[in-house]
Design a binder for these strands. Structure first.
Length: 485
RNA sequence: GGCCCGAUGGUCAAGGGGUUAAGACAUCGCCCUUUCACGGCGAAGACACGGGUUCGAUUCCCGUUCGGGUCACCA
């Protein structure tokens, strides 16, 4: 902390999943740094060897990149404080843990990890957690046991009296009684540090000025402060973020639906929409009422004061709306490319008018994943279903619609040139000759189109897509089905 | 259960001692449209409760209730 540059870090553990909550932490960390022209660094916290997941680090890189959260230092690009992967920093942690022992703020502990139960007998000074049995162990004896190869951990020696308080940039000043704090483990018996310890050491060494993380860490922060004090290090800013919860008020989990970035992408959401969405979960710009912002705009807008304290419910409804906003605002060629990727797969050799399809789809799609179902009627030919011959607006019932369609077919089959003008003219003539109102003719047609797609959910709207919008000339495909139906 | 944190419509939220308490999503209605959408306009809907402080509390303080977090050799 040799200067006043803001420096934040995203410190995920490589689990293979980028949870929405993690992503939001990364976003806010990025934003807090960039809003002040600071640096954002990436550090991989892989100190749990049992949880190692192959390829998990790639998920992190890929997600950050896709969201535009580019880091200034990290395992992949290096930096002045590397290495940036904790499993490669083991000597640091041991060195600092031993320094703490020498300073009297930590001690080796030989108690087996399975012995927690015995502390329930409440003989010790505290009635919870570890009973501090090894707290005053003789250093000489300890050294002997360590040299003999006995398994041990290093624990932090918490003060027995007094209180510790710190000021969080979001939650304000928080105070806890020191007797509430457990003598937590700093270095595990396998030589790896615990999260709590590695975090403090690395954040200091990497000169992090603002520790931004979820509020689930709020209650362990006093232990961090004690660690900083024991080392004689300056205490950084703490910025705890409100949790993201599900619609039932419970922690967001699988049963709420998609909760990871990859899930959301697979669901058809745009990365930009996801970023915009989570930016507004627990934060608001203040007097500004607009809600659609690019990452660049957010960088200029973001401020810690706007962060809320209460947990925020993740709303898929709102995400849907945001996604629609982003889809509609997409430059046409970009949108068409997305459609092409999907139709190529769905249609294979079949010909279709890509521009038309993209054009008609753009104002109608909520999620990319909806598209396949929306256009599937183009390749599937399903039998007409009488239930679908119903149109409230045109006062049609199944009986009537079927009659009109049947009457219409001779007219349509004469059409050679499928252009807007010709088609509309044909329908108009047919309407006149059959003495039907225009609305009824179109209504029946629509019902007919709808009948091509009998899959549940959105059948009608999908069928109508090709039949409507500006390019009526492309009705041909659908109407050919009708002619034969 | 102990400790910590929180509470403005169903959801995200602005605001803050005196306001008709913004806006967005969702919902409903109307308009536009040959239909579905898009779009436009509008409606309904909130300061958890009880005590203080104050001329005046949704806003400040205390309590209650409710909600969340945390109590690992996980992060």
């Amino acid at each position: 902390m040799t200067n006043n540059l803001v420096k934040t870090r995203f410190a995920p553990s490589p689990t293979g999943i980028m949870h929405i909550g993690n992503l939001r932490s990364a976003l806010y960390e990025y934003l807090i740094a960039k809003a002040k022209g600071g640096a954002f660094i990436l550090r991989i916290e892989d100190t749990d060897r049992e949880r190692y997941v192959e390829g998990a680090v790639e998920v992190i890189y890929r997600t950050l990149k896709r969201c535009g959260l580019n880091h200034d230092e990290g395992p992949d690009i290096g930096g002045p404080h590397g290495p940036y992967t904790q499993s490669e920093r083991l000597p640091f942690y041991r060195q600092y843990a031993e320094e703490l022992i020498h300073k009297g703020h930590a001690y080796p502990c030989f108690c087996p990890s399975t012995r927690e139960e015995s502390s329930v007998e409440d003989e010790g000074p505290i009635a919870f957690g570890y009973d501090r049995r090894c707290r005053n162990i003789d250093p000489e004896k300890a050294k002997l046991r360590i040299d003999a190869g006995e398994s041990y951990v290093i624990r932090q020696k918490m003060p027995m009296t007094g209180e510790t308080s710190f000021t969080d940039d979001v939650y304000g000043t928080i105070t806890v009684q020191n007797k509430e704090l457990e003598d937590q483990i700093l270095l595990k018996s396998d030589g790896y540090p615990t999260y709590n310890f590695a975090n403090v050491v690395d954040d200091h060494l990497m000169e992090i000025t603002h520790i931004v993380r979820g509020s689930e860490y709020l209650s362990s922060t006093p232990k961090y402060c004690l660690l900083y004090e024991a080392f004689g290090w300056p205490i950084p800013h703490f910025v705890h973020l409100p949790l993201i919860i599900g619609e039932d008020g419970k922690k967001l989990s699988k049963r709420h639906g998609s909760t990871s970035f990859d899930d959301l992408i697979a669901d058809g959401y745009l990365a930009e929409a996801i970023v915009n969405m989570i930016a507004f979960l627990g934060w608001a710009p203040g007097d500004e009422t607009r809600e659609i912002f690019s990452l660049k705009e957010l960088e200029a807008l973001f401020h810690v004061e706007g962060i809320n304290k209460a947990p925020a419910v993740f709303s898929y409804d709102k995400l849907n709306w945001m996604n629609e906003q982003y889809i509609r605002a997409l430059p046409f060629h970009e949108w068409r490319d997305k459609i092409k990727a999907i139709t190529d797969k769905a249609f294979g050799e079949q010909t279709y008018d890509l521009d038309m399809l993209a054009h008609v789809l753009q104002p109608r799609v909520t999620k990319l994943s909806d598209i396949e179902a929306m256009i599937s009627f183009l390749t599937k030919r399903l039998p007409l279903s009488r239930e679908l011959f119903f149109n409230k607006r045109a006062k049609l019932d199944a009986e009537k619609a079927e009659g009109i369609l049947t009457a219409l077919i001779p007219f349509l089959s004469k059409v050679e040139d499928w252009t807007d003008t010709v088609l509309l003219q044909t329908l108009e003539e047919a309407g006149e000759q059959l003495e039907l109102k225009k609305g009824l003719v179109m209504g029946a047609l629509r019902a007919g189109l709808a009948a091509q797609q009998v899959t549940p959910g959105g059948a009608v709207e999908t069928a109508v897509i090709l039949g409507q919008a500006e390019s009526l000339s492309r009705l041909d495909r659908a109407i050919q089905y009708l002619r034969e139906a």
